[in-house]
Design a protein around this nucleic acid. Sequence first.
DNA 1: AGGCGGTGTGTAATCGATTACAAGAAGTAA
DNA 2: TTACTTCTTGTAATCGATTACACACCGCCT
Lengths: 348, 348
Amino acid sequence: MGKSGSKAPSIRDVAHAAGVSTATVSRTLSNPDVVSETTREAVFLAIRETGYTVNLAARNLRKRETGAVAILLPNLANPFFSRILSGIAEVMSEAGLSVLISDTTPMAKDDHRLPEYVNQNNVDGIIVLDGNLRQDALLNRGSPEVRAPMVFACEWISQIDRPIVTVDNQEASVRAVQHLLSLGHRRIGHICGPPDNVLTASRLEGARGAMQSVGLRMKPEWIYPGDFSLQSGSEAAKIWHGSSDRPTAVYCACDEMALGFIGELTRRKVAVPQEVSVVGFDDLDMAAHFVPSLTTICQPRVTIGRTAARLLLERMRMTPQERSARPAPRVVLPVKLAVRESTAPPPG
Amino acid sequence: MGKSGSKAPSIRDVAHAAGVSTATVSRTLSNPDVVSETTREAVFLAIRETGYTVNLAARNLRKRETGAVAILLPNLANPFFSRILSGIAEVMSEAGLSVLISDTTPMAKDDHRLPEYVNQNNVDGIIVLDGNLRQDALLNRGSPEVRAPMVFACEWISQIDRPIVTVDNQEASVRAVQHLLSLGHRRIGHICGPPDNVLTASRLEGARGAMQSVGLRMKPEWIYPGDFSLQSGSEAAKIWHGSSDRPTAVYCACDEMALGFIGELTRRKVAVPQEVSVVGFDDLDMAAHFVPSLTTICQPRVTIGRTAARLLLERMRMTPQERSARPAPRVVLPVKLAVRESTAPPPG
DNA sequence: AGGCGGTGTGTAATCGATTACAAGAAGTAA
DNA sequence: TTACTTCTTGTAATCGATTACACACCGCCT
């Protein structure tokens, strides 16, 4: 099979082996119906004999596309993103596209430049999961429409008008807080996301709004700072534990903080949910297995990934004119409230 | 800045704008010292004016390389891999290479074919984190040496002689079990990894060996099946809880199973570590925040990723001859035992 | 026989960057 | 002035696949 030699077989080798021209080989591969039965078989045989695989660089150069999409996400180490990636990877792999993952954390220090390859001629599309990228990193100064098609998922940048796949964060927060209210809680606190995150405000506002609509108020000292990390959840627990005027329930902007919060409280012998109820956001795998299992807003993460991927594929099929003509859709996916053990009526 | 027009600026546009030839532009970019001061400045100015970025497809076609490495991993949704990826991405991004991530789960059903682009002419190197891939998927039938350089990390395929980055799983298991023995445990069980995984046997053997070396035996009924999932951990807990002849300590082949195990036990009012001690493997972020916090083998996941990446870069710089001449190294990274709350002396 | 439509195939241009080679300019030594 | 470096630049071939265009061939109709 194939000479043990040096370089990979090219389409010319196949053409030679099959006794046809390179054009015919190419046609056989891309559009088998136009070649005759006998040629087709000869070509397929030659491909098998030579072990030929198409050179994507050459194809991409010629077709002016790259066969790859880039995913920009803030932190690859965060398990929240892994299922989203999984959904994206699934759809893209079906579409025959490869997925290029780029952690944007290094870019923060390395200023506002994206890696060289996330460029209109190196990827066919971009999915952005990071709302804190600098706007000028994502748009070409002179001509924004040249940039590869782009969609946002989960987070977004308000100034950039592109399709967004998200959940209704405010509404979800309302649901979470209403659940606590219906259990009888009147003193409800919140652990916030990072200050510069687009989601932080809407989750906080949703919670505040739900309280206000029943004539209650969320005291400022019940609003704990956070940054989506386990650590910040346990910090909040320390504050909660150290203060006298405590909420009886805490709604957390993400599961990691909720679990960090509960962990620290349990360690301090504060019983959840007997002494304080906790609601999370995201429904990480761990949420259902933690003790107590976590009542949380269930974000359909795989669906978010799949939807963003499909939306991007759709936009990639459009011409730039069509893209800018058609308004960027905003897909809002439904959430569920998963009620588990971490919420109960307030003490007393 | 750049006409609002249709296609991305090419090297010819830059050459034209700077009044030089394309060769000079190319040289300015790849080897600035060989062009004169004045030309260099003119070219850089023209690049800025046109907004030129190199077309990687063209470069790769010409240079016969791709500027990308592929990572094959069994399950993108598993948080265990995210930090490893993070380490890989960090090193690769410094080296100017892009990282192409491929979840191998779909390949299991889609038979033994890797995605089209993971081919010697579409990536410059491959990092494999999945020991269950079929061997013929990774090697070309006729000429294995044509395939892009490859390294294994964490898991590997014994029949394929390639560099491996791993920890000493057997030794780590010995450490874990010795810790339990030193606490006074004599009845120690094990939750296994999936049967077809390379790590499963070494972790089980390590545990068994540690028992045997002090004249103890691990009863077959204390060996619980598992598959690295939270769920399988709670299944094991049900079996443990339902049997009369129980081990007083259980060493789990991964943290997820350990946490699932503890979660289910706690739910059944079995106190950990008072009634049963638990040791995990991996040191997921969650391990330290769980209640009780988990005693576990700490795998340096980011370092594993970085090391694998550096090893791959090194192999990529070698000629195929050098690669096959030099034996494939096996890098064994040290683990630590993180003693936390989930282990204590046996009851009574 | 001449013309026409349809198939199937080959020829050659093309995508954009790199680089071997050649050639011109400028400087130095004889 | 000629010969010979040294430095800088341009010309053109090349990487491998795709595809517009042309052409050869076959069968069929008038």
